[in-house]
Design a protein around this nucleic acid. Structure first.
Length: 417
DNA sequence: TCTGGGGTCCTAGGACCC
DNA sequence: TCTGGGGTCCTAGGACCC
């Protein structure tokens, strides 16, 4: 009998990914505090003497958050998710670059391909990180994945010129934590015996799945570190956090996690949303809102078509000026895909929300996705197809809350006639 | 001038069905 | 009548993640 194989799971996280891609393009910025974020259209200007002129944070006025930033910028206390205006107070002279997702996606594909050439069992976790199963990689068991992780780092650097940090442990939960321990350009290998010394001293919020709310609640019980949670009475965790989450907290704090590497998954929903430059009112800004609404539906329809899906559940999302979020959705008798049908369905949802408050954000979402044969009808439809007039909705009757009559919806949207 | 955009998963109640 | 018990679907909201 061969000895039981230990699972060897790697988590690979690109270092300051967007910022690092920008530094490849603008190498003169290397070593400086650089921030990516804010609005579009702020390209660096090439000057007469050949040097480039960059916008700085102090030049910026408007809404927006930091998407990511260089380690030099982080030294000022700037971090991703921070409002640009706040970041400008901390580091007014930091260079501000606009986001260029197309470019980041190109580099994302490149690094993932480079990894795949070394180790094919990969789980995509977004544009800049992946899990990799090293368990069955030849030789990996011998050194706990160290050589494999080294070759992954080399392959990524050769393919992109970018560094990454890798954690290798028996599971995804620990590897995710481990990849952060030695950033940037790090490599950390841990096994179960390292948990007390390396994992338990860390803040509970370092665990993927313990967010701000759960961390605050834990802190209220004087549970601050992962070790605190591990030492807590499981019965107490179950009672306070519920059966499911409480049990998970206990297991996670002990470093237990059986989740497999998921190499493929179908999308569950596709959405588009936009935050306005200023808060808009359904009546006073009707034209602007209507145009924006139409645009969102068009972009969503385009995304669906490009990815080969139709949708049977259309929803909207609003964020009011006070930051409250409401959503409404409607399930249709048959899948749809074109912008006009999406707009009509989303319009019926809009009639069910309060539109007397100013809106900060408007979004449109497509759920219950149905895969399409190339450019043809849906491959499968859960609801019965009821022919071309399938626009009518099956909403359970609920009166519109809106005091405003047909806010920014055209008369043609009114299906209640 | 605080607080983007794109996702996933979970919970919970009511409708509806057997 | 004093009150079943599953099961699924739909909807809304919220936590969390990148």
């Amino acid at each position: 009998m061969p000895a039981a194989r230990r699972r060897l799971i790697a988590h690979l996280d690109m270092d300051a990914f967007y910022a690092s891609v920008e530094l490849l393009r603008y190498p003169d910025l290397r070593g400086q505090p650089v921030v990516i974020g804010g609005s579009k259209d702020r390209q660096p200007v090439r000057q007469q003497d050949g040097t480039r002129r960059y916008a700085t944070l102090s030049d910026y006025a408007g809404r927006g958050v930091i998407t990511t930033c260089t380690y030099e910028a982080r030294a000022f206390g700037v971090h991703s998710g921070m409002g640009v205006m706040k970041a400008a107070r901390l580091a007014p002279d930091a260079v501000l670059l606009p986001v260029d997702f197309d470019e980041y996606r190109r580099y994302s594909q490149r690094f993932k391909e480079a990894v795949r050439d070394v180790a094919p069992v990969i789980e995509d976790r977004g544009i800049d990180e992946i899990y990799i199963d090293l368990t069955d990689l030849p030789g990996a068991q011998g050194d706990a994945g160290q050589a494999a992780a080294r070759s992954l780092k080399d392959a990524v650097f050769d393919a992109t010129g970018l560094t990454c940090s890798i954690g290798v442990t028996p599971n995804k939960l620990l590897s995710k934590i481990a990849s952060e321990l030695d950033k940037p350009d790090g490599l950390t290998l841990l096994d179960a015996t390292d948990i007390p010394s390396r994992i338990w001293p860390l803040a509970a919020a370092k665990v993927n799945g313990i967010g701000p709310k759960a961390a605050a609640k834990l802190a209220g019980f004087d549970l601050h570190t992962i070790g605190d949670v591990a030492a807590a009475d499981p019965g107490f965790l179950l009672a306070e956090f519920g059966r499911s989450y409480g049990a998970w907290l206990h297991a996670a704090a002990h470093g237990r996690d059986d989740r497999p590497i998921v190499t493929h998954r179908e999308p569950k929903s596709i959405s588009r949303e936009t935050t306005f430059e200023r808060d808009l009112h359904a009546v006073r800004d009707r034209a602007t809102l209507s145009e924006s609404f139409t645009r969102l539906c068009e972009r969503l329809a385009n995304d669906l078509h490009r990815k080969g899906y139709a949708t049977q559940t259309v929803g909207i999302k609003l964020r009011y000026d006070d930051f409250r979020i409401v959503t409404r959705d409607v399930t249709l008798p048959a899948a749809i895909g074109d912008a006009a049908a999406i707009r009509q369905a989303a319009g019926s949802c809009l009639k069910r929300v309060d539109l007397s408050r100013r809106l900060r954000l408007l979004g449109v979402r497509a759920g219950t996705l149905v895969m399409m044969a190339d450019g043809a009808a849906p491959l499968e439809t859960q609801g019965k197809s009821i022919g071309p007039k399938a626009g009518a909705t099956t909403t359970r009757a609920s009166p519109p809350i809106s005091q405003v009559d047909l806010p920014f919806i055209d008369e043609s949207d009114d299906t209640s006639a």
